[in-house]
Computed example of a mutant assay.
Amino acid sequence: MKNLILIAKIDIQETFASKWFLFYLLTFAGLIAIFFVTGVVDSRVAGFSGLTRMLLLFIQICIIILPIFILITTVRSINSDRETGALEYLLSFPISLKEYYFGKALGRAFTVFLPIFIALILSLIIAIFKNVDIPWGVFFYYTLLLLVLSFAFLSFGFLISSFIKSSELGLGFSFLFWLFLLAFLDLALIGLMMQSSINENIIYSISLANPMQVFRIAAISLFDPNLAVIGPAAYFILDGFGKINFLIYSALYPTLLGIICMIFGYISFSKKDLI
């Protein structure tokens, strides 16, 4: 455990010194600042105002940019150590592969979620400063959704880096993987429904296997309990799950998926040629 924490600290220190982390931090903190400057907190659209309105906009942005940010920064975590020789150097010490792998994962998880957490705290401060109502239940559950989504894509990144040793190939595959999941948010599924005779319930089930889609629908349900925005799929979700069960599924499924990917990534990492 001591070595695991040590590896995590080393990764955190390296990340704090990197330019991508500063850009990542400024992106999310800057979004909240832009919402504040443009008066989003004071506006009312479709019945949403205050912190609820700000979180609604933040959701739409996080669906797109958060997964690709995490994939790009995570997939290089192990591969960059391979290419610089740091992996060979660290493993020359009495550090096990498990301690190295999960230590890197722990350190990267901290640095991935820290800017999001700072942005959410900043949104709370703005809401308090503006003296608007704070939907605490929505805020805490949305924070949980961001945490599990981040963990899922963090695990995807480590899984990819354990299979693909080249940083360039890893980045390319990560980008294609993100595009694939993004396409299956709406466009690919609509095309599949229009061009095939597949039962729509099967298509909806495929859609709910996409962690980005699960995050999107769960976040929308916090503001629109009837899910009127997503059309006929709302009947499949509300009748098949119920709102509470779907919210539970939305938190558990990405977490379990992330755990499975992290374990498979470690198995691949430990069995392949490391250098």
Rank of each mutant, 00 (worst) to 15 (best):
L120D: 00
S123W: 01
S123R: 01
L124T: 03
I125K: 04
I125A: 09
I128D: 07
F129I: 12
K130M: 06
N131E: 11
I134E: 10
P135V: 15
W136I: 15
W136M: 15
F140V: 15
Y142F: 15
T143N: 13
T143W: 14
L144R: 01
L145F: 14
L147F: 14
L147C: 09
F151Q: 07
A152Q: 11
F153R: 05
L154Y: 09
L154F: 07
F156W: 14
F156H: 04
F156T: 05
G157L: 07
F158E: 09
F158I: 13
L159E: 04
L159N: 07
S161R: 06
S162E: 12
I164S: 12
K165N: 09
S166T: 08
S167M: 05
S167D: 04
G170Y: 09
L171E: 11
G172Y: 06
S174Q: 06
L176Q: 12
W178G: 04
W178L: 05
F180C: 03
L181S: 04
L181H: 03
A183C: 07
L185Q: 07
D186I: 00
D186R: 00
D186S: 09
M193H: 00
M194K: 15
M194F: 14
Q195R: 14
S196K: 02
S196V: 00
I198L: 01
